[in-house]
Each structure stands twice: as C-alpha cells, then as structure tokens.
C-alpha cells in the first residue's frame, strides 16, 4: 500500500498544481496543455483504483478527442495565442471567495463524514468485461439514451456551427 500511496501523492500533486496553473495562466494554449496534464493524472488515479476501462476511456475520449476539440475551438475563435493580460476577469476575487467557501464546506463535511475510512482493499476487481456486461444489461436503456444524446449533440453542433 505504501507504493500506491506514494504514487497517489505524486500524481495528486501534479494534478492539483496543473489544475491551479490551468485556471491562472495567462496563455490560453498553456491552459489547455495543463488540462491535459490534469486529465492524464486522473487517468493514473483510475488505474490506482483498478478501474482500467475508465482509465483507458479517459485517455481516449478526453485527451484524444475532447482536447483536440478544445484546441480547434481556441484556433477558430482566434484567441490570442501567447501571453495576454485579459484572461482573468475583474471579479476574480469574488470567484476565489466563492470557490474557497465551497471548498471549505465540502472538505469539512468529507472529513466529518468519512474520517479515516479506508478504501476497500482486496475486493472484487471489475474488468472491462464486467463493465461491458453491466452496460449492456442493467444499464441498456441509459446507454441507448446516451447514444441518442450524442446523436442530438452531433446534429446540434453541426446546425449551430455551420455557416449558412
């Protein structure tokens, strides 16, 4: 368990630092790349939790597809690439206050509720096949609904973004 805790610590450090840089950096492309670091780190956390399929999907979908989409969005909106003073709005102190308040209350309730509870160890490990079984049996209707949602999003994105 020690090795895992060390891995968790290292990855968490990277993730949190990257996330902080992501919301504070003045360079929008850097911001996107920090988000990649966060997502990759989370993928590592999923591996630590023995959720192999989620980890893989995280890499494939987020880093592979969503991030490319973001980079395209940055390019197409001709955002200033390179440093810019205008990345953070004037109301950032309020935002920071709200975020800190929210964080404080969540942290307090988590510590209060779960205290030193440990993650179940040596429990059943769900492999990709188990996830597939579950998706296509118990959750078949939500799954179909998601596919319809993706189709709707696809059509909606095309309708919105095309030039006419």
């Amino acid at each position: 368990m020690v090795a895992q805790n060390i891995a968790f610590g290292i990855i968490s450090g990277i993730v949190v630092l990257s996330a902080l840089r992501m919301v504070t950096t003045r360079n929008i492309v850097h911001s996107a790349l920090f988000l990649v670091a966060v997502l990759a780190g989370l993928s590592g956390q999923y591996v630590l939790l023995a959720a192999e399929f989620v980890a893989t999907t995280q890499v494939l979908v987020y880093i592979g597809a969503v991030m490319v989409l973001f980079l395209f969005g940055i390019m197409l909106t001709k955002a200033p690439i390179g440093k810019s003073m205008q990345m953070t709005g004037t109301q950032w102190p309020i935002a920071a206050g709200v975020a800190l308040m929210l964080g404080a209350v969540i942290l307090y309730s988590l510590l209060d509720q779960f205290g030193s509870e440990r993650v179940t160890e040596g429990g059943k490990i769900y492999r990709t096949a188990d996830v597939g079984d579950e998706v296509f049996s118990t959750y078949i209707i939500p799954f179909e609904a998601i596919s319809v949602l993706l189709l709707a999003a696809l059509i909606g994105a095309i309708v919105l973004a095309r030039k006419d």
């Binding site: 968490s12 950032w92 942290l107």
Partner: peptide, 24 residues
C-alpha cells in the same frame, strides 16, 4: 489508502473548476 484522499482530491479539483468558471 484512505477513502478521503480521493474524495478530497475530487473536492479540490471541483473548487478549482468553480473558480475557473467564475473567473475566466
């Protein structure tokens, strides 16, 4: 591994996200 270490990581990331949404 503590359950809380993951939950707190999630909470911290969530709050950073909230800050990003509100401030950027």
């Amino acid at each position: 591994m503590l359950l809380n270490q993951f939950l707190i990581l999630g909470a911290v990331l969530f709050c950073i996200g909230v800050y990003g949404v509100l401030a950027r």
